[in-house]
Amino acid sequence: MLVEEGVSDRPGGAGGTPPRIADQAAVAQSECRGVLVISAHGAYDMCSVKPLAEALDAAAKAHRTVVLDASGITFGDSSLLNLLILTHHETDLRVAAPTRQIRRLLEITGADTFLKVRETVEEAAACH
């Protein structure tokens, strides 16, 4: 089920060309093993993080455990990192299948030491 879409205002390349379709932010939700899964696709920065923030906020208010399927995130900056930390304080947030860039962001900031990061959505939904 598609929840909401947003488009990043980040320039996609030299000369201020628009972002590629793959970088457009989109958020969807589903369920795995009785746990709510928020799937994020595209690039997330201060201009495009709002739809994901709204989805995670609503999920955190309604569910004790939330899985973020990060396999479709092509870019994330401090705005995304801040959102993950804030959501972690509100609910049992689990980050599933982060892309290489997102995994690196979590590692260099130390966020991977307190966020539950798993290789798959299934693992994240099952972890305790």
Results as ranks from 00 to 15, higher is better:
G16F: 05
Q101I: 14
L52E: 06
L106F: 15
A60Y: 07
A43W: 01
V7L: 05
Y44H: 07
D92P: 10
A26I: 10
A59S: 11
L93G: 09
C127T: 15
H63D: 11
T113I: 03
I21M: 05
T109S: 07
S78M: 04
V117L: 06
H63G: 06
E5C: 07
G110P: 10
C47P: 00
P11T: 08
S30E: 13
L93D: 11
D23C: 10
I21E: 13
G16W: 05
L56S: 09
V27R: 00
S79T: 13
L86Q: 09
I85S: 02
V37C: 06
A53H: 04
S30D: 15
V3F: 05
L84Q: 09
G42N: 01
R33K: 11
L68N: 03
S79R: 00
A14T: 13
A60F: 08
P18C: 06
G34K: 02
T120S: 14
H41V: 15
E5Y: 01
C32Q: 12
R20N: 08
L68V: 11
V27Y: 01
D77M: 04
K50D: 14
M46F: 11
G6V: 13
M46P: 14
D57H: 05
A96Q: 05
T74Q: 07
T120C: 09
A59K: 01
H88T: 11
H41K: 01
P19Q: 06
P98M: 09
P18S: 10
R103E: 15
P19R: 04
S30W: 09
G42W: 02
S48Y: 04
E5V: 12
Q24Y: 13
I108S: 03
V117M: 05
D92F: 07
E122Q: 07
R64A: 15
V35M: 00
L2Y: 09
T120P: 12
L105D: 08
L105M: 13
L81N: 03
T17N: 04
S8W: 03
L106S: 09
I108Q: 02
D69S: 07
L93P: 07
V121F: 08
V66M: 00
R118H: 14
